[in-house]
């Protein structure tokens, strides 16, 4: 195979450092890192950790945009560090933990709140008619798959929470990804759990906290379009309300 020589570049990184064992505010630390121009920001961080400062803490796993663990603020934007290519950042690169979440250490955000919210919205199949193993699998047509597939692409990276100003201002908001995932199961032909999920979704902490800023959809690396999911939940919840109030009035 031909040996491809990649161009080198000295990348200037400003990384927010926070050590929970030493009281005080997080501080930016400046590093000059010898990089290949085709690296992503995660490569630069890995170089830093391997060669300069082994205490630097951040999450990553797959290096291919599927595990969702390397989310961080890069020049103020929520990004996957393994998807953010150095060539797109000519100047100094400022790296911070995901906005709106507490900082655990360095670039690691505390994800507890998101995990708790995910549990609340029951993002799993609640079968409408339970089948025994002998009865075989649940069948689905391509059209039925299409109804929810886009929302099933979420990798739980939390970039949408870091982008959502509503979540920043009102941390009780269940938020874009959790509601999109609930919506994904609501739209699944095999599922019968919508009523249970509506208890969480059709509330002030749920979908009605959303004011349709749309930032979530702009930053989502998987084109889930959480903003669309939330508006769809709003429309459906409004229809529910009218049916409940208007229909009972008609029956009287």
């Amino acid at each position: 195979m031909m040996d491809v020589q990649l161009a080198e570049r000295q990348a200037e990184l400003e990384v927010l450092r926070y050590n929970p064992e030493i009281a005080g505010e997080p501080k930016f630390e400046r590093y000059s890192v010898p990089c290949k121009t085709e690296w992503c920001v995660l490569d630069a961080l890995n170089y830093l950790k391997d060669n300069v400062d082994p205490t630097l803490t951040y999450r990553w796993s797959c290096h291919m945009q599927v595990c969702g663990s390397c989310g961080m603020m890069i020049n103020g934007e929520p990004k996957l560090a393994c998807k953010a290519m150095l060539r797109d950042y000519p100047g100094v690169i400022r790296i911070e933990p995901l906005a709106h979440f507490p900082v655990e250490r360095d670039l690691v955000a505390v994800a507890d709140d998101f995990i708790a919210k995910l549990k609340r919205v029951k993002p799993y199949l609640i079968p409408s008619d339970k089948r025994s193993l002998e009865e075989g699998e649940y069948r689905q047509t391509p059209a039925q798959l299409k109804r929810y597939r886009q929302f099933a692409m979420c990798i739980n990276c939390m970039l949408c929470y870091a982008a959502c100003p509503e979540y920043g201002l009102h941390p009780k908001f269940i938020g874009p990804a959790a509601i999109s995932l609930a919506h994904r199961y609501n739209r699944d032909s095999r599922d019968g759990g919508r009523d249970e999920r509506q208890e969480e979704l059709a509330t002030n902490e749920g979908v009605w906290e959303c004011t349709f800023v749309g930032a979530c959809s702009e930053v989502c690396p998987k084109h889930v379009d959480p903003a669309a999911a939330l508006q769809q939940v709003k429309v459906a919840s409004t229809v529910d309300w009218y049916l409940e109030h208007f229909m009972s009035w008609v029956k009287k």
Binding site: E21, E25, H100, P102, V103, E104, V110, P165, L169
Partner: peptide, 12 residues
């Protein structure tokens, strides 16, 4: 190791 998360306030 004890946890001591740092909260960054968002200005309303």
């Amino acid at each position: 190791m004890s946890r001591n998360p740092y909260v960054r306030e968002v200005s309303p």
